[in-house]
């Protein structure tokens, strides 16, 4: 670990996410070279950048799917993956990591629905096994969530029989079933046919309106402009530019941002 002296009770208690100099390498390749970011509760932060810029990796570090090599990451005041006593860090047990992850919902690029379970069973699984809800209660909640994402008529359908857009909406309902305080979206529309992108973005927009804190890694510039509270441009493992979406998109200050935007806009 690096020489960051951080007090046990982080100053960012009011923040939903606080990243401090987060570093991550895969083998010899350093993917994240010191990320500092703060996300307030209720904020929708969109992260854009060329592929290989480390934006997905950063997202996966937030819920500890990847272990960071240096720096600190807090979610809702909890130091992710470690317990700090004095200036010594202790790795958390699997169980404790699982408990931390319950506050964080994640939506994947490739949906990662459980193919052997129906839409209803996909949404019910974690509430039943992790939150230990009763069967009736879990089904009731799942039905409400599937209705919220517009799939009330697909409850008993297996993922393979759903379109990509429908699968991704089930995946969002599945993540919401754990009643997370923070939702992470890892390029949620990148694997979708163009005409299916809209239905997923619509669900996400509604979620943002309802006040969910969201970090969205995306290539949908329109969504970032319309729904995002803040926009982060990453390149080469660092945050190049951050600001209000309209401002960054209209007047990018850095040459790299200008170059990237000229290609995607």
């Amino acid at each position: 670990m690096s020489d960051h002296a951080v007090d046990a009770a982080p100053d960012g208690a009011a923040l939903m996410v606080k990243a401090e100099s987060v570093h991550k390498s895969f083998g010899r390749v350093e993917v994240l070279k010191g990320i500092d970011l703060e996300v307030r509760p209720g904020e929708v932060m969109c992260v854009i950048g060329p592929s290989g810029s480390g934006k997905s990796t950063f997202l996966r570090c937030i819920n500890h799917l990847e272990k960071i090599d240096a720096g600190r990451l807090w979610v809702n005041g909890h130091l992710m993956g470690y317990r700090q006593k004095g200036d010594k860090l202790y790795e958390l047990r699997d169980k404790e990591v699982s408990a931390q992850r319950r506050e964080i919902g994640m939506v994947f690029q490739r949906f990662n629905l459980f193919p052997h379970k129906t839409a209803m069973e996909n949404v019910c699984e974690a509430p039943l096994r992790v939150r230990r809800l009763g069967r009736a209660k879990a089904r009731e909640q799942a039905a409400a969530l599937l209705e919220r994402v517009g799939l009330a008529d697909k409850m008993d359908t297996y993922p393979a029989q759903l379109s990509g857009g429908q699968q991704q909406r089930v995946a969002i309902a599945r993540a919401l079933a754990m009643e997370p305080r923070l939702m992470l979206f890892d390029e949620p529309t990148s694997a979708l046919d163009p005409e299916l992108v809209g239905e997923v973005l619509e669900v996400m927009k509604q979620l943002a309106v309802d006040g969910m804190t969201m970090i969205v890694v995306t290539h949908e510039i329109g969504f970032a402009r319309e729904v995002g509270d803040s926009l982060v441009f990453m390149d080469g493992g660092v945050v190049v530019e951050k600001g209000a979406p309209r401002e960054v998109l209209a007047n990018p200050r850095h040459a790299r941002t200008q170059d990237f935007l000229s290609k995607v806009l």
């Binding site: 819920n63 799917l65 699997d94 169980k95 699982s98 408990a99 992850r101 319950r102 964080i104 919902g105 994640m106 994947f108 490739r110 990662n112 629905l113 459980f114 699984e125 974690a126 096994r129 992790v130 599945r174 993540a175 754990m178």
Partner: peptide, 17 residues
């Protein structure tokens, strides 16, 4: 698919579950 492990982990399921 390893994504299945990740999805279950992200939902807070234990390794046994």
């Amino acid at each position: 698919d390893p994504g299945q492990n990740e999805a279950a982990g992200a939902l807070g399921m234990s390794r046994m579950q």
